[in-house]
Nucleic acid binder design. Sequence first.
DNA 1: ATGGTCGCTGAAACCGGTTACTGCAACGTT
DNA 2: AACGTTGCAGTAACCGGTTTCAGCGACCAT
Lengths: 330, 330
Amino acid sequence: MGNQRLTVREIAELAGVSIATVSRVSRGIGQVSPEMRARVEQVIEEHGYRPSQLGKALAERKHGAVAMVFPGLSGPYFSELIQGFEYEAMEAGASVHIVGTHHRAAADDDVLAISGRVDGIAVHGGTIQDRTLHRLAAEVPVVVLAGRPLDGIPAVRADNSRVAELTRHLLLDHGYRRLAFVGNPDGSPDVTERWEAFKQGHREAKVAAPKSPLKVGMQQSDGVIAAGELLTGRRPPGAIVCANDETALGVLIGALGRGLKVPEDVAITGFDDVAMSSLVRPGLTTIRQPVRELGAVTARLLIAGVGGPGAVMDTVLTTELVLRGSCGCP
Amino acid sequence: MGNQRLTVREIAELAGVSIATVSRVSRGIGQVSPEMRARVEQVIEEHGYRPSQLGKALAERKHGAVAMVFPGLSGPYFSELIQGFEYEAMEAGASVHIVGTHHRAAADDDVLAISGRVDGIAVHGGTIQDRTLHRLAAEVPVVVLAGRPLDGIPAVRADNSRVAELTRHLLLDHGYRRLAFVGNPDGSPDVTERWEAFKQGHREAKVAAPKSPLKVGMQQSDGVIAAGELLTGRRPPGAIVCANDETALGVLIGALGRGLKVPEDVAITGFDDVAMSSLVRPGLTTIRQPVRELGAVTARLLIAGVGGPGAVMDTVLTTELVLRGSCGCP
DNA sequence: ATGGTCGCTGAAACCGGTTACTGCAACGTT
DNA sequence: AACGTTGCAGTAACCGGTTTCAGCGACCAT
């Protein structure tokens, strides 16, 4: 405690050189004679000098930090996403700020406040208003994560249209009728696209799609609640397509807890392919998306600087249908 | 894009005043005549001036940011923890850096690297080596979160000893014998304390405790794996005490998936009381800890400055036994 | 009229780095 | 011998804020 850090000028004094030389040595650039370099390095080593990030940042006019904004960080999806993002940022020497808005009123202000502290911001789709997004983009490079590109703001996302393929599989290969969709499109570009793909799949199979989705949250506990809603009526659906694995697992637990058999009584599918999905009985049929990679690509894009001519505006990562027992496959 | 931010000097020029006055107005302190204040405020408003965090930070010699270091952020526990921390930090105007070490080799270096960017760091128990912790504490205020205080480094934690009460409940009230403990004490102060309390409960009930815990991770998927290990042998335990709710839910799913009845065939308990625990059938008997509050208290402590005489060295939040169906209670 | 107080504003120093530019010595070339 | 390179180190000017201190005019008391 207490022993405040040394500055360039003090190190310069101790080594009997100018501050320019200290800076050159500590950064390892510029021309410095071997003996001078050795002398300065010795002093730096002795006193454990490390340049202040503050001075450095001001002089270089960059923060060496990026931020990620998301609604909340419940569950494996956000964990993976952040880990991919954070790992990539760390590799590039940038530290990571996080802003979870979790339904806070002042969220948009918080996001603007962070813009003065970072070199770039990744905003999870549906987290803040488009208006705020534009104001943000005027201050600092922005990438939309899991959402659509918007007026010069690039996006990184997964191919949600594969839900159409899943839907056709349920309708045509297994012959289920009366599918239900669990998930709330409002405020989530991902869920919106999945719901649209769900309807598209119905069109392609020439089967009437349900009028509306069952709007619940994205957590496992929301799935349990959804199961209660869907499976207690007189005409329960033959298959339940969930917006993500966590709700699907919740629905599965809710169904099994009611003594129903999956997939005999009801089929269930998810989206993400989280670790649990291959471990439950029956295994969860789902769509695998490269969540970690999504975060990593976003970080790389942000650090590379985003803007400029020829910049990639829309990065869509491929997804993959994973068939397991919960849809009726062996 | 492109329109770079204005500086104090430019605003001063535009308003026809000195930079000192601009600074005083923008900070709202010091003596400024009403008309001058109005004039400057007008210019600030017009041009959307907001002082650079970089200049501010350098001049004030503080970053206005705190960091949280943890092993990884899987599951609801870390989500809640971070949300509590982040919310409190935001309230105080500090932004939040996160560092997930997730078993990275260079983790300790990363943590030291971040120390030059923040005013304080919360380190989750068991994340980095004690040696690194000391070096860190020499640079910046540090609080250990979910761990023991260490040589002047304060800690914030929950009362894990309540696991002894839970253990006695299983042994004495329900009469179970042959309890198993699921969780890996290595590298986790929390799990270590819970395992110790588990043995303590056995001593108090005068029942022999198992020699060692079943060492698995803290995620739901690890619980499924643990269920496979414990429930396939010839003499399965009568009750399984898990280090946290997520593994307990995994064990529960694994047990039900094998056609076992809970609690008739095997009782299961957890720790945390996450949302899912009250939704599964049977409800999960667990110990409730105030995870969010844990994060919030840590943030407050860090922002208040930690050190100094009379500082609180050890903050222990109370926990509560929550009895539901999975232990055999009605 | 003079001296002292008070309220307000501005000049300049400072925070801790980076870097353009300058100066100087040693060397090679014609 | 005079001159142009070249390599190296130092001076000083930034980066964008905050804050100390000095100065100045208005006001009041004597």
